[in-house]
Design a protein around this nucleic acid. Structure first.
Lengths: 112, 112
DNA sequence: TTGACATGATACCTTTTGGTATTATAAAAA
DNA sequence: TTTTTATAATACCAAAAGGTATCATGTCAA
């Protein structure tokens, strides 16, 4: 039960983090290389403070990890954090398939 | 360019719709069978009006379609609407793999 | 040590969001 | 036709979200 709740939390945190375009953009940047807050902010027009807030949300969603290096904070993507989201989506694959199967059946048994 | 924008719109609409737990729950209900607003609302404590707002957001994200049947409105899941989200996630699969490959290499070339 | 610099922390503002309550419509049923 | 009933539409509210500005802090470098 505790695990279930933790999973739901991860799921919500991840979905929440992904719901903002700027945060998805940040993830794409970080997929190229890990970056400090300043480096990430250089790609946007908003202030460093705003970028930092987005990074916090991404960290809460476990989509990135933050590593202190001297006075810098290096942000690194954590692809594993996307797993709960991918898993949730996977549930609906069967409806995809189901619909495709129904279509296939309809074609094969078409009485024309 | 128009297509790109349309895709981005779809992506944002879908991610937006999925960011709320109630809306994800609604999708799960609708994956069992199509339902009217009232039927969906019966599964929740919030008012019909609130459920209807959620359904509107889901429709805007193209995750459901709505079909008028007399004075009822039947809500049907549209699994295809999840495709943009799945595609977006798929981009990160390579980083997943990359990291696994790096781990594999590290193990295989371990000088111990 | 001192100054520059990367970041943290707060406070504040505006817009969006998730929700309720209320009233209006339109279709189905009595 | 009258009355339910399923939904639409609107107004409203509190909280959250996304953003800025400002000031504090800790670290690097001269």
């Amino acid at each position: 039960m505790i695990q279930v709740q933790a999973q739901e939390t991860d799921l919500q945190g991840a979905f929440r983090a992904l719901s903002d375009p700027s945060r998805r953009q940040i993830l794409l940047h970080l997929s190229r290389r890990e970056m400090t807050i300043g480096e990430v902010a250089a790609h946007f027009q908003m202030t460093r403070a705003a970028v930092k807030k987005h990074l916090t949300v991404l960290e809460e969603g476990r989509l990135i990890s933050v590593h202190v290096r001297g006075r810098e904070r290096v942000n690194r993507i954590e692809p594993a954090g996307l797993a709960p989201v991918a898993d949730w989506l996977a549930y609906f694959d069967r409806f995809w398939d189901q619909r495709l199967d129904a279509l296939k059946d309809a074609v094969e048994t078409d009485p024309r």
